[in-house]
């Protein structure tokens, strides 16, 4: 009963769909999280009678083609802007528009993130919550009263004893033509890949780059209502596929009673 195998591909596809949706919902309040989406495509068709072939007397307008189910085509992220939330953190920075912050990992490799909830480490460097420095590194002098970050990424420190603000560095962003091609490595980080295209580095506000907003974080772009609807549809689709398997099983049962 081939129908059961066909429906099984549908079960697997809907399971992947639910997994992607569950991950989106789990990360609904993860800063800078971008929702995932699963794409499907139909599998090959078995052509028993080709459309347009001839049966001797007439050209057949349609044929007999039986499909073999579904397969996942991709499960990638949608990089639309998340909403902004005001915070009091001086080093909470959101990107309004395109681009990623660059983070240097312990092994020296550069990875990318939209999650701009940064901290200062004991030496005054701007680091991620896990202590990895941003790239290029920016350190804040010890005698700093407050820090301002401009929309173009210029970081200025106001000394405690009064006096003029000192520019201590400029944030840099990286952008990719196809961010959906980046590899998610967890912890809100993305890794370069051939699919994402060449990395382009620039300052915030440069052509094609977003601007930086201080004391703001970018919330996830997950819409709970939308994910819930998607989940209902995925669950019902899963059920219908299981019914097809059950029907195939029932029909096999009938075969078993053919001979008494």
């Amino acid at each position: 009963m081939r129908a059961m195998y066909i429906a099984a591909t549908g079960l697997a596809a809907q399971q992947l769909n639910v997994e992607v949706i569950a991950n989106n919902l789990a990360n609904v309040s993860t800063i800078g999280f971008k929702r995932g989406i699963a794409n499907f495509q139909d599998l090959l068709y078995q052509t028993l009678k080709a459309p347009g072939s001839s049966n001797g007397t007439r050209t057949l307008p349609v044929g007999i083609q039986v499909g073999s189910g579904v397969r996942p085509e991709s499960a990638h992220r949608i990089f639309t802007q998340g909403e902004f939330r005001r915070t009091d953190g001086e080093f909470d920075i959101a990107i309004e528009g395109r681009g990623f912050f660059q983070v240097a990992l312990d092994d020296g490799s550069i990875v990318f993130t939209r999650s701009g909830a940064f901290e200062l480490d004991k030496d005054g460097n701007i680091v991620t919550a896990e202590g990895n420095s941003i790239e290029p590194p920016i350190s804040i002098p010890a005698d700093t009263e407050s820090v301002t970050i401009s929309p173009t990424g210029i970081v200025e420190a106001l000394p405690t004893g009064g006096g003029a603000a000192v520019q201590v560095g400029t944030l840099q962003l990286a952008r990719f033509i196809n961010p959906a091609g980046l590899i998610s490595i967890g912890r809100n980080l993305y890794q370069e890949s051939l699919g994402a295209g060449e990395k382009v580095v620039g300052a915030p506000g440069d052509p094609g780059f977003g601007r930086t907003l201080q004391k703001t974080v970018e919330w996830s772009n997950v819409n709970i209502a939308e994910e819930m609807i998607n989940m209902i549809i995925a669950q019902r689709s899963y059920e219908v596929n299981s019914k097809a398997i059950q029907t195939g099983d029932d029909m096999l049962g009938v075969v078993n009673t053919l001979k008494r």
Binding site: I6, G10, D42, V70, A234, G248
Partner: peptide, 9 residues
């Protein structure tokens, strides 16, 4: 079965 396997396609 193929139709319902492709409900999400």
């Amino acid at each position: 079965s193929n139709n319902i396997a492709n409900l999400g396609t």
